[in-house]
Amino acid sequence: MRLALKPSWVWILLAVCVLAVSVVVVQWVQGDTLLAATAEPHTVAASAPAAEAVLDSTTQQHTLAAVRALAENSTGDELPAADVPSSDNCIACHTNQTLLQELAVEPEKVESELAAGEG
């Protein structure tokens, strides 16, 4: 009863505190979710317990290390840009068979004269 009789500034202060706590909690939850989403590909690729069980010899562990190194170095990790410009010019050309027949050229194949055999 006494609390209800407090001046209005006490209620305002209480409301601000509740709001601040809510904002902190929401941000924490969102941040955790994003972190999990971006980390998942690395986590899955790097752990794979079944593969560890198979690769038990020194040589195979060496191979696994090489595989991991190549995997880490050869994949772009950027996420798609949120704001992508229009692709209208790409579509206009790449759906126009006549235009493509005029413009498309096979990239020059660079092949050594010393190459021989299949594969």
Partner: peptide, 13 residues
Amino acid sequence: GCIACHGGVSGVD
């Protein structure tokens, strides 16, 4: 859209 995956320049012919 094409550019999201392939890059390139928008709006030029």
